[in-house]
């Protein structure tokens, strides 16, 4: 936390209180990871957790971010791979999921490239910006999922996820 300024001074990266980081680290330290450059500068980090009951037991990506100077190096891809591996092998989850702004096509394309697909659309998940230029797309989120080895029949995903609308208060 003392060294993450080059990453967190970005507007899309929220700086939370001490409790946020420590609560993740005190429960899922192996789902949190920092990438450093050879000179010791922080390049990016991912924070995740494991949650859900029964077949909904899964790994969740809470935050993933890369400093401006270390973008376009597939760092996010590598951190996602790590998180999937740990969710699969240590936590034995059925899938990994994440939320992404519907307007963030760059990120959506990247996640699709990594094998994620939209499971549902959560309305008004991101409240802070209000309805901006992109209309609804800016505040709605896609819940994207990728099945892991414990879900060989891929029951945790569906084809028509983009049309499944739910309200923000109905999701955890």
């Amino acid at each position: 936390m003392f060294k993450f300024n080059n990453i967190n001074l970005d507007i899309w990266t929220e700086t939370y209180g001490i409790g946020f980081y420590l609560s993740y680290l005190s429960r899922w330290p192996d789902l949190c990871c920092v990438q450093e450059a050879p000179n010791g500068r922080m390049m990016g980090y991912v924070i995740g957790k494991a949650e859900g009951s029964n077949t909904e037991w899964h790994g969740h990506v809470t935050a993933i971010t890369v400093a401006p100077e270390y973008r376009r190096l597939s760092l996010a891809r590598k951190m996602m791979t790590l998180l999937e591996m740990v969710s699969d092998e240590t936590y034995k989850g059925f899938f990994v999921d994440l939320y992404v702004r519907c307007a963030n096509t760059v990120a959506i394309n990247m996640y699709e490239g990594l094998g994620y697909s939209v499971y549902r659309r959560v309305r008004e998940y991101y409240g802070n910006l209000g309805i901006g230029k992109g209309g609804r797309d800016e505040e709605d989120a896609f819940d994207m999922r990728k099945p892991l080895s414990r879900d060989p029949h891929q029951r945790s995903i569906r084809m028509n996820g983009r049309d499944m609308l739910v309200r923000a208060q109905d999701v955890s």
Binding site: P38, N39, R41, P68, Y70
Partner: peptide
């Protein structure tokens, strides 16, 4: 053409 090139070569 990546932003990190300068920092990488610095040493």
């Amino acid at each position: 053409d990546k932003a990190c090139c300068f920092e990488d070569l610095k040493p």
